[in-house]
Design a protein around this nucleic acid. Sequence first.
DNA 1: TATTGTTATACTCTATAACTATA
DNA 2: TATAGTTATAGAGTATAACAATA
Lengths: 152, 152
Amino acid sequence: MSSVAVEIGSELEAFAAAFDAFARAAKRARVRVDPDAILTPSQHDLVGPLADGPLGLRELARAAGVSAPTATRMVDGLSERGLVTREPDAGDRRAVRIALTASGRAAVGAHAERRLARRRALYEQLSASERRAAAAVLARLAEAYESLEGSA
Amino acid sequence: MSSVAVEIGSELEAFAAAFDAFARAAKRARVRVDPDAILTPSQHDLVGPLADGPLGLRELARAAGVSAPTATRMVDGLSERGLVTREPDAGDRRAVRIALTASGRAAVGAHAERRLARRRALYEQLSASERRAAAAVLARLAEAYESLEGSA
DNA sequence: TATTGTTATACTCTATAACTATA
DNA sequence: TATAGTTATAGAGTATAACAATA
């Protein structure tokens, strides 16, 4: 009985240690990221949801996981740079519609390409079986996070 | 031949998509984190390496993945709060030794506990075989990142 | 000269509280 | 009253450039 408990505990510890090592390595790698990127990671997270079409400010803030004032400020900067537009909503005069411009869309695309190149560099370090296992595990963990969100 | 290339491409895409989904989910989870934590995530990343003993400022900055001025500033704040000490190095009068205080160590411990609880919540969503696979994959990816660093 | 650390400066990201305009 | 968005304010985190002290 107690040996089972210990075993579960050490398996959890192995999982947590691996998770932490991965998170640390990923963070270090993120720091080293292109200084000439058009969008910061936060900006990319913000405009990403706009790829599917325009959103209201509040919807956008929620999709990007930031507060409304933060989204307002970020949209200010991005629209000054011509990457997004902020137009009045036809049906509700309180509301705005935020949309990607053509160059905003191009910036998102360029960012996605760089990100893919980084994923590829990692991918190329792995053997064929590791590649398959990694894809499966990462997808499963993302799913597990989603289940968790419901309870938070 | 071309089917092999296509297959490799789509496997990379599956890997990248899974990686991105995981990164997004992890980011959303990180946002939702305890507002009453003693240390912010960045502060924890900074003081974590001190658990193994005192470090010079530059060593610390490197271990935490930030610039030296950033580390200086963060150490300022943490030492005002009594979580770390900054003492002159005995052998090199240019250098300082930065160390955790007892309450700094306690803060790291408390933070590590909360983090373990979050890892556990995720772990508990997985089946036994998924748990083992996840630990192995995450450890392998961390290792792959390290190999990458050499070439960066 | 090279290295260690700090200061000066500037920008992004972030939030909460208070406000305006509209519903 | 409630909702959409903005402004005001504040603070953390981040970097590069310039500097001081020491090696």
